[in-house]
Structure formats: structure tokens, C-alpha cells
């Protein structure tokens, strides 16, 4: 599954580690259970830590660790399960998470715009063709109607700007 960041396919520096496997050096991606069982020790080790956070668990639990987590991977078990969009916005907009927010699971091109607007900046894309089309798909909409943490100007902002221009 290709990983897309900043519009391009990149290699994944993070190794996903099973709950019962020893922790290697370097960048790791571990489960929520493993992280919470011994967070302080894990976060003190040498190397970046990322967590795969299930979509039925409150992201508020992550607050004490946010500054020390390099990656939070949120999960889309199916295309239709949209809980992780809320988790992403809360992490970015409410709790100020600044690390990598990765979309994993059923990640298809038709969700890219929604994911970007919710605060995701890394995408574990299921199909190669979708990953290759990322850049084009991400630019699909020049107009958005609602304010989110991505800071894009909404349709209303654009209208106001046009009116101000007219007024000048």
C-alpha cells in the first residue's frame, strides 16, 4: 500500500510492530493498547513513536502524549465508517496535534478531499492508481463551504472578499 505525503508517494519510515514482538530501534508504529500499557518507557526510547488509534476510542486519551508522538494513524475499517474524520479534527483543531496524521485502512481516492480537510496529512492508500492520482484529486474542489482546521477560505469568505474588492 503506497504512502502519500505532501502529494507524492514516499517510503514509509515507520515499522509496524506487533503487540508481542520486541521493540526495534528506529521509528515504530504500535497499537493503542501497547502504548497505553507503558507509554512513558516507550516514549523515552530512541526513535520516533507512532500509534495506531482505533476509531471507537476517545482521542482525548492521547492528550498527555501528543507532543511526543510522531504519528497518529487513524483507521477506516470500511469506506463508509466515518468516525476517524471526527477524531482527526479533534486532534488537530482541539488538541493541537502537530505530528503526522495518517489515514489507514480503506483509503480510496474519493475520500482524499474529506481527509485533507479534516487534518490528515499522510495517506496509506489502498490502490496504486489512487495514490498516483492523489495530487489531481486533492485539487478537485476549488470551493468549500464549511470552515475546518485546514484554514481554506470558504465560499462565504470568497464572497466577502469579492464584495470588499467591489467596495474599494
Amino acid at each position: 500500500m503506497p504512502l502519500v505525503k505532501a502529494n507524492v508517494i514516499v517510503s514509509d519510515d515507520f515499522v509496524q510492530v506487533a503487540d508481542d514482538a520486541p521493540l526495534p530501534d528506529g521509528a515504530i508504529l504500535i497499537s493503542a493498547t501497547r502504548l497505553l500499557a507503558d507509554a512513558e518507557t516507550i516514549l523515552r526510547r530512541n526513535g520516533n513513536t507512532g500509534v495506531v488509534w482505533p476509531n471507537n476510542r476517545s482521542v482525548a486519551e492521547l492528550v498527555p502524549y501528543l507532543g511526543r508522538l510522531a504519528v497518529i494513524a487513524l483507521v477506516f475499517p470500511t469506506f463508509r465508517d466515518g468516525r476517524a474524520y471526527t477524531q482527526a479534527r479533534l486532534l488537530r483543531e482541539r488538541y493541537g496535534f502537530e505530528g503526522e496524521l495518517r489515514a489507514t485502512g480503506q483509503v480510496l481516492r474519493d475520500q482524499f478531499v474529506f481527509m485533507l480537510r479534516s487534518g490528515f496529512d499522510a495517506f496509506d492508500v489502498k490502490k496504486d492508481s489512487d495514490a498516483e492520482a492523489f495530487c489531481q484529486v486533492a485539487r478537485r474542489y476549488s470551493v468549500v463551504y464549511q470552515p475546518t482546521g485546514d484554514g481554506r477560505a470558504t465560499a462565504h469568505d470568497s464572497r466577502r472578499a469579492l464584495q470588499d474588492e467591489d467596495a474599494r
Binding site: Y85, T86, R89, F114, L116, R117, Y145, Q146, T148, H156
Partner: peptide
């Protein structure tokens, strides 16, 4: 209507 149109968070309720 505008607010909910392609809402990024609420299109997969």
C-alpha cells in the same frame, strides 16, 4: 445546506 454540502467530517455518518 451550504454548511452540510460535502462536509468533510459528516459525509460518512
Amino acid at each position: 445546506r451550504q454548511y452540510t454540502t460535502l462536509h468533510p467530517e459528516f459525509s460518512f455518518l
